[in-house]
Amino acid sequence: MTPTLDIAGLSTHFFTRDGIAKAVDGVSFSIAPGEVLGLVGESGSGKSVTGFSILGLVDPPGRVVAGAIRFKGEDLVGADAQRLRSLRGNRIAMVFQDPMMTLNPVLRIGEQMTEAISAHSKATKSEAQARARDALGAVGIASPEERLTAYPHHLSGGMRQRVAIAIALINAPDLLIADEPTTALDVTIQGQILSVVQRLVARSHTALLWITHDLSVVAGLADRIAVMYAGRIVEQGAVDGLLTCPRHPYTAGLLASLPERAVHGGRLASIPGMAPSLLNRPQGCAFRSRCGLARPECGNAMIAEKQVGDRRFACLHPLADSAGQVM
């Protein structure tokens, strides 16, 4: 089966006055129809830029400099603006952390929704209205008919995010890119949003790329996880294996830093130091200055990715296969 999305060697660089920031540097992954991939990383790891690159939304001074983004077999790198426009909001949709990035504050919810429908199909006004109403109902908004005439500022943060999700899914896209859509929300509201997205995506067999910094969220949501560090994917694989037995020291360090698994009153295992500047990414493994297992050869040129079963990781001295809590 052709994957919905297949990214190979994607590099997106920003050509700034201070130098070239390699925000994304040789990223490869793919997502099958109906699959959920969690793309996890800390701030500045390049996870959001990866999402923007897929939609062709990287603005100058940024530019996709290498690699291929194949959407159902069609390469989107170098596709013309017309073609991207017909895909965006139709076959590929995106949800952002702040729903006000998607919603127009001076348009009624109904107009924004019907606009998304009529931009991509020849629906009559009443058909579009009906579809918009159904979409609002599907994301769990009470009395959708009335909400169609509301403005975004009438709604709470959680409701706005539901509307943004309803708009994203209104044309039943093949791929949904969700960039930290629950990060700004409260725990109980986050649960509601996760449940809505999970249900709708499963129903329409949409491939989902869920970008987050929170491993706990993707643990329960995703099929596979890819961990990014300083512009590269350091490890990817099925959720269970990756979380119980990480091979890359960064993944292990990230997991050990979570208070969830720590003993109360003990010390948290923290990763010393901080992430390198993207302007001045060290040669070889970018994590080596913070890694307890680093050796001189970790600084050699490019670290090749190894594949063991369904797991891929870029490390010369990976952690043992069974016991992952070495760090």
């Binding site: 109980t188 449940s195 969220v217 643990a219 949501l221």
Partner: peptide, 24 residues
């Protein structure tokens, strides 16, 4: 109870998220 149940956990695998209804 709702708060603890709603929080995502690292031990979750393909869980069905079902949160408490309603807004704050």
């Amino acid at each position: 109870v709702a708060l603890l149940a709603g929080a995502p956990r690292l031990e979750d695998r393909k869980r069905a998220f079902a949160a408490i209804e309603g807004e704050i």
